[in-house]
Design a protein around this nucleic acid. Sequence first.
DNA 1: TCGATAATCTCGATTGTCGAGAGATTATGA
DNA 2: TCATAATCTCTCGACAATCGAGATTATCGA
Lengths: 152, 152
Amino acid sequence: MADADERRELALLLRRLNVELDAVGQRFADLHGLNRTDVRALVAIMDAARRGEALTAGRLGDAVDLRSASVTALVDRLEKVGHVRRVRDPQDRRRVALEMSDTAMAAGAEHFGALAQDLTAAMEDYSDEELAVVRRFLTDMTDVITRHSRGS
Amino acid sequence: MADADERRELALLLRRLNVELDAVGQRFADLHGLNRTDVRALVAIMDAARRGEALTAGRLGDAVDLRSASVTALVDRLEKVGHVRRVRDPQDRRRVALEMSDTAMAAGAEHFGALAQDLTAAMEDYSDEELAVVRRFLTDMTDVITRHSRGS
DNA sequence: TCGATAATCTCGATTGTCGAGAGATTATGA
DNA sequence: TCATAATCTCTCGACAATCGAGATTATCGA
C-alpha cells in the first residue's frame, strides 16, 4: 500500500486530467464558434450515431439536461450552421430525428479522433498487464466518483 | 502491447471518468444554488488558499477565464451569498483580495474532501508497484491531452 | 370520432457573459 | 517632483443561453 501522500497525489492527477479534458472540448468549441452545450450535444448525437440510433430532440434534451425550449434553440443553432439536420421520423411522425452533417462528423472525428489516436498510441508503451491494472484502477475510481455525482 | 480495441476502451474510460467528475462539480453546484462558473471560482480560491496565497479578482479571472466585468459579477454573486469576502489589499489598494468564508470552506471540504477520501481509500487495494504504473499512465495521458487542449 | 398522450415549439423573463470605458491607485521617467 | 503610463477593479449597456408556462401538432386507444 502506498503512503497517503502518494494516493492524494494520484487524486490530484485525476483532477488535473479532468481539467485538461474539459479544455479539449472547450478548444473544439472555440475553433468552431460553438458553446459548451453545443459541443456536448454534438458529442451526444455522434455517440448515438455510432451506436446506430438517431437521437430525437427529446432524448437529446435528456442527454444534455436541457428543457424543451432550450433544446429547440440548441438545434436551431446547430442547424443554422449546418452541423445537424432535422428529419421527421417516418415511423412516428411526432418525432424529429437529428442527423449530423458529414462536415460536422468529419470535424468531430478530426478533433477527438486525433486525440483518441494519440492516446492509444501512448498506450503502446504499456504491457498488457500494466494496462489491465490501469483499467481496473479507472473502473474503480469511476465507480467511486459516480457514487458522489449521484446521491452521496 | 494490448490490442487496439482494449486501448480504445481505455480511452473511453477516461472520457467516462471526465463526465462523472464534471457531474460531481455540477452536483455541488446544485446543492448550493451555484452555477458551474461559481464552483470553478470557489475551487480556484480554495486551491490558492491551500497554497497560502489570497487570490485577487484579476487572478481569479485568469483562473476561470473570464473578463473583468464578468469577474465583478461573479464575485458579487459569491459575496451576496456569503461565500467570499472582498478585502482591499493594503499593499496595493487597487487590488481586491478574495477570502473564502469558513462556511464555504467547510462546505467545499465536506463535498470534495469526502470524494478525495473515498478515492484514496479505494486505492488501498493497490500495491505500490501498481500505483506507480497508474501514476505513469495518468501523467502520460494528461500530457497527451494537454497538447490537444492547447495548440494541436 | 374524440379524448388522452407525447413531442416539439413559441413567448416572455431571467441570468451570465462580454466590450468599452471610467475611476482609482501605483510605477516610471524626465 | 510631476506628468504620464500602466494596472486593477468596477459600471453600464447589449447580447446570448436558458427556463417555465402554455400552445401546437401528431399519434394512439376506446
